[in-house]
């Protein structure tokens, strides 16, 4: 599989986090996956300003020529995308959220019914499956993990795909690799 890891760790001093991802990436490659890790904190990604120009002025692309275009390119060409982030104030990082909402041009403005709800129409024929890999903050509890997971499950509906798993970086890289190999 072609796998993209969106590393939403904003803190370069959190080496435990990045080292874990390096181990995971190595293990996945040794399982014959092609892995691209995008270290979002080293990329220039502006906030989405909700202008919808990616739908009506430059269809399919954000009008701002920032690195979100690279994120979109990697995303849509992947079989699996891992959203990876420390939990900060009960949710994934701002860094990851910034990149996430700039995926909007991958959809069309039009609306259709999916599971009897209104959702935007696909622009592409195929979207990657998604998974979550999180680092707990000190007060993270099961309710937090359920809230985050449920919101990303909604995202899977929005992006016409399936949600595979929520894992923690306290789970071994081998365990996460096995989970991915079983997809």
């Amino acid at each position: 599989m072609r796998i993209t890891i969106l590393n939403g760790n904003p803190n370069a001093e959190n080496t435990r986090f990045d080292n874990y991802l390096k181990s995971l990436s190595d293990l996945l490659e040794s399982s014959n996956h092609t892995v691209t890790t995008l270290k979002l904190r080293e990329m220039d990604i502006k906030y989405c300003i909700g202008c919808f120009n990616c739908w009506v002025k430059t269809p399919g692309e954000c009008r701002v020529a920032d690195d979100s275009r690279d994120v979109c390119r990697e995303y849509i060409n992947s079989d699996l995308v891992l959203f990876v982030s420390p939990i900060i104030m009960g949710f994934t990082s701002t860094l990851l959220k910034k990149a996430h909402e700039k995926l909007l041009p991958l959809l069309l403005p039009y609306v259709e019914l999916v599971q009897n709800e209104s959702h935007h129409v696909s622009r592409y024929e195929k979207y990657p499956r998604i998974g979550l890999l999180l680092e707990k903050e000190k007060d993270t509890d099961d309710e937090d993990l359920k809230i985050i997971t449920d919101i990303y499950k909604r995202d899977a509906i929005n992006f016409k795909t399936s949600f595979c798993f929520t894992k923690l970086i306290t789970d071994s890289a081998e365990e996460v690799t096995n989970e991915i190999n079983s997809i």
């Binding site: 906030y47 989405c48 909700g50 949710f91 701002t94 959220k97 910034k98 996430h100 909402e101 919101i151 909604r154 995202d155 929005n158």
Partner: peptide
């Protein structure tokens, strides 16, 4: 935004 709050 994406079923949650905007990044700002």
């Amino acid at each position: 935004y994406d079923d949650v709050m905007p990044a700002i």
